[in-house]
Each structure stands twice: as C-alpha cells, then as structure tokens.
C-alpha cells in the first residue's frame, strides 16, 4: 500500500489523459552568453491545453446531492453550519484521542511496496467489524498470507514508546497466529533484546513467532505476486527472507490538537505521557496525571 497518501484514490488511469508532462522550452546556453535574454520561452497553446488536461481535478464530495434526494428522513443538509459554543467546566481531562497519529515512515523499507501495511492497518483488518471481516489480507490480491514479517524500521525512541509499539505489534502477531492456520511469523526489531529484558516471561509464553533482534537493511518487491524480500542484519551477519505480507511498525504521535490543548493549560506532553491508559486531569486542585 502506498502509505498515508490519503489522496491515493485520486490517482487513477484515465485513458484519455496524456501522461507525458510538458517540457518548458529554453534558449540554448550558447544564446545566453553575455546577455540577459529570457531563458524560458513559454508553452505553445496546444502544449498548454494538453498539459492542463493532465490535471486530475481532485475533488472529494461532488456536491451532487444524490444522497439528499434519496434520504427518506431528510437528514442531509448541505447548509448545516459549523457550530461554535463556549463551555465553562470545573474539570478538563485530556486523553490521547481515538485515532493514533503516526510519524511519517522515513526511508524506504517497504512503504512503497504493494504488500506492505502498517500495524494500524493490521489492527483494522483484525477487527471483526472491519473492512476484511477480521481476516488478514494482502492489499495486492486480497489473499491471506502464510508468511508474515513484522519490522520495526525506526530506532532511538523513548523506552515507553518502544515498549508500547512492540507490545502492540506482538499482540497482532499473536492474533494472526490464532487466525491463520500454520502461518509463519518473523518479528524483526533492533530493540528486541532490550524489550525482552523489560517484558520478561510474558514474551516467553508467546509461541510460534520468531523474534529476531535485528535491523532491516532494505526490502524489495519480488515476483509477480509482489512478495517482499527483506534483507536484515542480526548478530553481525546479514540474512534474507521473503514475506507474503510485511507489517511496518509505526511511531505513534500525539494528535496536534491534544498537544495544543495541553500547552494552553500550561503543560508540555508527548505521546509517551499518555501511555498505560494515562490521562491528564486539570481540576481545581491543579493538574494531575493518572494511570489506571
């Protein structure tokens, strides 16, 4: 999947759109010597029209009102305004919100591969009410993968975030094992040893997942089925493995509106501050962080 290109759906092949982009004509370097003649000479009319036709005219809701025409209870109202109102409260409780924001995935460890997904996408797949009815599927062909790789491609984060991210991924691996008969799962993280030290015996109870303390070096799409070949380094040597689905662990971030609210109330918080079901309560007795 092409991660977080929320615009992804706009990119569609229209047979009648010329795909070649137009080049701006220029005068030669020779002609530019010792004078200030304009270098770029401009598009000719037909070139400009062709170039303009390449525009995808990105748009979401069309504003066609077909839904409005079909809605029996007449609930749709295009003129329903935004609402602003003031509240006065005795207490404010900040939580990290309902969607987990993530930091952009740096580098290319599979972000541009068809059969690489994020841990958040896997979570949505695993939900019974989700798009895939609780099945883990490959975005390229909808098949259930028999060999899954989980990979942490970022390093050097707060220990609490590292533990949360790895716990989240490992839980997904556990559910995947239950759901897919005979699935092989490898879990590659440069922090695996450190995590094992803090998670202790809980991790030892997890069976059927190959935990590897290693770092992904590169990943490539292979073959017609677009499996993903991952090269990783572990214990001083380089290994290669091919996965039908690659799950990239993502770095959670605090939604900006929550961070901003916290700042206005006089504290600086990050995502780690909300881990372990923590909340920040602001009441008459001042701010306090709470953990269940």
């Amino acid at each position: 999947m092409y991660f977080y290109e929320k615009k992804g759906r706009y990119i569609i092949d229209f047979a009648d759109i010329p795909s070649e982009p137009a080049e701006m004509p220029e005068i030669s370097v020779q002609e530019r010597k010792h004078n200030f003649k304009e270098v770029e000479t401009g598009f000719a009319g037909e070139v400009a029209v062709r170039e303009a036709k390449r525009c995808l005219s990105c748009r979401r809701c069309l504003g066609c009102a077909l839904c409005w025409a079909e809605c029996k209870p007449e609930a749709i109202n295009f003129n329903l305004p935004d609402q602003d109102f003031d509240l006065e409260v005795d207490k404010v409780i900040l939580t990290s919100g309902m969607q987990r924001n993530i930091a952009p995935i740096a580098g290319n460890f599979g972000n541009r591969h068809m059969n690489a997904v994020t841990d958040l996408q896997v979570e949505r797949m695993l939900a019974d009410t989700g798009p895939s009815t609780g099945l883990i599927i490959r975005p390229q062909d909808g098949e259930i993968p028999k060999k899954i790789g989980f990979a942490q491609t970022f390093g050097a984060v707060d220990d609490r975030i590292r533990d949360a991210v790895l716990t989240f991924g490992i839980n997904e691996a556990i559910i995947a094992r239950k759901k897919i008969n005979g699935v092989e799962i490898s879990f590659i993280s440069p922090d695996m040893d450190a995590f094992r030290a803090s998670a202790g015996s809980d991790l030892d109870k997890v069976s059927g997942v190959d935990f590897i303390n290693g770092s992904v070096v590169e990943s490539t799409e292979v073959g017609e089925n677009k499996h993903i070949q991952v090269k990783y380094e572990t214990g001083g040597s380089e290994k290669t493995d091919v996965f039908e689905l690659l799950v990239l662990l993502t770095l959670p971030q605090l939604p900006s509106h929550i961070a901003e609210a916290a700042r206005q109330l006089g504290i600086e918080v990050d995502y780690a501050g909300f881990l372990g079901n923590s909340l920040f309560k602001f009441g008459p007795e001042g701010v306090k962080s709470e953990t269940d």
Binding site: V89, D90, V92, I93, S96, G97, M98, I258
Partner: peptide, 9 residues
C-alpha cells in the same frame, strides 16, 4: 460538576 473530556478513544 461539569467535566470536559478531550479525546473519544
């Protein structure tokens, strides 16, 4: 008392 909770997770 009135309480504002931010975040519907």
């Amino acid at each position: 008392k009135k309480v504002l909770v931010m975040g519907g997770g």
